[in-house]
């Protein structure tokens, strides 16, 4: 008998299992309501993660159901504000996944050296830690002067923080370790000074950076790039939206441009997969057609 590969889904039909499906209806209704009432579109975000955030809000408000939260959110803008904060996950770090930066130095930098001018796009840059990490790397490789980094996020608030260039001082030890393992060529502490209760990074790192708001769901391509970095953003989208964003990236990359994804994201099942070759196990892809 042929082996049948079947996808495992929750049981349907029997009473004890009605719950998960009803839950999905409620989540979808709430997201639809939020979209129509306030214009924030979370309808194609990854269900499992949205559900977790919604239940957290329900519990901290002392509510017991999604419908109860829906009622509050649709009638009280303050509740929408809270929910918006819950739903924006801006967690980031400098030189997160040091192995990625090592691979970038080894595999990508030699290609970039052949270009007179380099354009990079950090999509979903959050508070900018990644952008500063890349600026440091480019500086150390002698490429920063001919680079321009476009750093975008949907969220204005995190972009303002990124522009400020001040990061929590208590994370500098962790970042220093990351920096060293990422192949850092200098001393990490040279890049910042303790100021305003934080670590103020050298303004020279952002002189070639343009921060601006961009929504990957609704906004179009705004230029052509040699490198696009979008790490740990697509995991918050469902497959359909991931495909749409891949279309945007494909259209925004120059030929032989590089697409860098998060270490547990992949191009599998994406329509554009065959247009790229993977240049490193670290999820670095090169557009080849």
């Amino acid at each position: 008998m042929a082996v049948q590969i079947e996808t495992v889904r929750p049981k349907q039909g029997d009473a004890a299992d009605a719950k998960p499906d009803l839950e999905r209806i409620e989540v979808e209704l709430l997201l639809e309501g939020v979209y129509r009432q306030y214009g924030f579109d979370f309808r194609s975000y990854a269900y499992a993660s949205i559900r977790r955030r919604l239940w957290k809000r329900i519990e901290s408000e002392g509510l017991t159901s999604l419908s109860a939260l829906q009622e509050r959110v649709l009638h009280e803008p303050e509740m929408m504000e809270k929910l918006l904060l819950d739903l924006s996950i801006n967690v980031t770090a400098m030189f997160r996944d040091p192995g990625f930066y090592v691979a970038f130095r080894e595999k990508v930098i030699p290609m970039l050296r052949t270009y007179p001018f380099i354009r990079l796009w950090h999509a979903g840059c959050s508070t900018g830690e990644e952008v500063f990490s890349m600026a440091i790397l480019l500086k150390e490789e002698g490429l920063y002067e001919r680079s321009r980094i476009y750093a975008t996020d949907i969220n204005e608030v995190v972009l303002q923080r990124a522009k400020g260039g001040i990061f929590p001082i208590d994370r500098m030890q962790e970042y220093t370790d990351n920096y060293i393992r990422a192949g850092g060529k200098s001393s990490f502490s040279e890049y910042y000074t303790a100021k305003y209760g934080g670590a103020l990074f050298s303004p020279s790192l952002t002189k070639n950076v343009v921060f601006s708001q961009h929504n990957l769901v609704t906004d179009k391509s705004f230029s052509e790039f040699n490198v696009i970095l979008c790490r740990n953003v697509l995991i918050y989208f469902d497959k359909e939206l991931q495909t749409k964003v891949h279309e945007l990236f494909y259209g925004s990359l120059s030929m032989f441009g590089l697409l860098c994804l998060g270490s547990k994201e992949s191009m599998r099942f994406m329509r554009y997969e065959q247009c790229y070759e993977q240049v490193s196990g670290e999820k670095i892809y090169r557009k080849v057609k």
């Binding site: 495992v8 889904r9 998960p20 990854a46 269900y47 993660s49 977790r52 996950i89 980031t92 995991i235």
Partner: peptide
């Protein structure tokens, strides 16, 4: 690691 019906869904939430 989260799951959604038949799929894995990863996050970098705190």
């Amino acid at each position: 690691l989260l799951v959604d019906a038949g799929e894995v869904s990863l996050t970098v939430d705190a």
